[in-house]
Computed example of a mutant assay.
Amino acid sequence: MQPLFDAIASMSAPVDAQRIFHGRGGLHPECAHLSLDFFPPVWVLTSFKPATDGELAAIGAALERRWSQLAPGETLQWVFQCRHEGQSSTQLMGGSVPDPHWVTEEGARYRVNVGRGQNHGLFLDMAEGRRWVRAFVKARPDARSRVKVLNLFAYTCAFSVVALQAGARHVTNLDMSKGALAVGQQNHRANGVLAGASFLPHDLFSSWGKIARGGPYGLVIVDPPSYQKGSFVATKDYARLIKRLPDLLEPDGLVLLCLNAPELGPKFLQEQMSALAPELDFVKRLANPSTFPDVSDERSLKVLVYRAPPGVQPEV
């Protein structure tokens, strides 16, 4: 576990939530099952296989040493989550977890929950996607060009928060989980942008009429789970979604397509777009955060930008 110990020994104490060590990227095979995140003021260690008491004690000691240097006199707060064979468990290893627990990212506030469940309320690997959305919306400063956004699989609506902070006209957030959208409403309220958003707790594939009536949209964000039974399975459902995209976009509108499935490379999306929505032009693939290095662009998070015809859009 030396690469993890090295990362701990050299880490800073970021103000914003972010990943500290990304073993899942495969650069350190002996630590491929480990990741370390900081949701200030709590450190979150995740392992995709069981850890021994000795391993946890060694990691805890390393965190304690570094934390005493970064924040003298402050209690180390950290949790351990084990995800193995479809099961997930979380243990509080030191200190306590704030309740409610709010973190920041580039000036936006988000409510998170690191004490239970696999998803904590903010996907750190999508930081560059949120940064791109903020920049794209901000590039349309006058009232006539303010963008209307459709945020599919919105989860806790982080994309919506940054879009509205940047000046979006309106964001429609759709997700099957009422609980996730309730947290999303809290996020909007905490950032003073609740009035610009709507929240639809619906199944996407039975809501096309309602979604279409709210359009057309200048930006459609598609960030689904890669496999969630009863909600979305990328290998069969992405095609159904892609077919609908041209009808949802205004001229020159953009779509942000996201896929986090190591077994599916970018060609999975690109080939389906070419076959099912050929009128949409590929613009670029967004880089992933530097804190998520990966041995393969094929395996890592895919975030692709496409544009509807015709016209010229501000540079993105």
Rank of each mutant, 00 (worst) to 15 (best):
Q2H: 09
P3R: 07
F5V: 04
F5Q: 09
D6V: 11
A7C: 03
S12T: 15
D16M: 02
F21Y: 15
G25L: 06
D37N: 07
E55I: 07
A58L: 08
A62Q: 01
W67C: 04
S68L: 13
A71S: 14
E74H: 08
E74Y: 02
Q77N: 15
G94M: 00
P98A: 07
D99K: 03
W102Y: 13
E106V: 07
R109Y: 09
Y110N: 08
G117Y: 00
G121C: 05
F123D: 02
L124E: 01
M126A: 12
A127V: 09
R130H: 04
P141C: 10
S145C: 13
K148I: 03
L150Q: 04
N151Y: 11
F153S: 01
A154E: 01
T156E: 06
G167P: 03
R169A: 14
R169K: 13
H170F: 11
V171N: 02
T172W: 10
L174K: 02
S177A: 12
L181Q: 00
G184L: 09
G184N: 03
H188S: 08
N191Y: 07
V193L: 04
S198R: 03
L200R: 05
H202V: 11
L204Q: 03
F205E: 08
W208T: 01
P216M: 01
Y217E: 06
G230R: 07
G230E: 00
T235P: 01
K236W: 07
A239N: 01
L241W: 03
L241H: 03
I242V: 15
R244N: 14
L245E: 03
E250Y: 08
E250T: 08
L259V: 06
E271T: 09
M273L: 14
A277Q: 06
D281L: 10
L286K: 05
N288A: 14
S290F: 08
F292C: 04
D294W: 04
S296Y: 14
L304F: 05
R307S: 12
R307G: 10
P309W: 13
P314M: 14
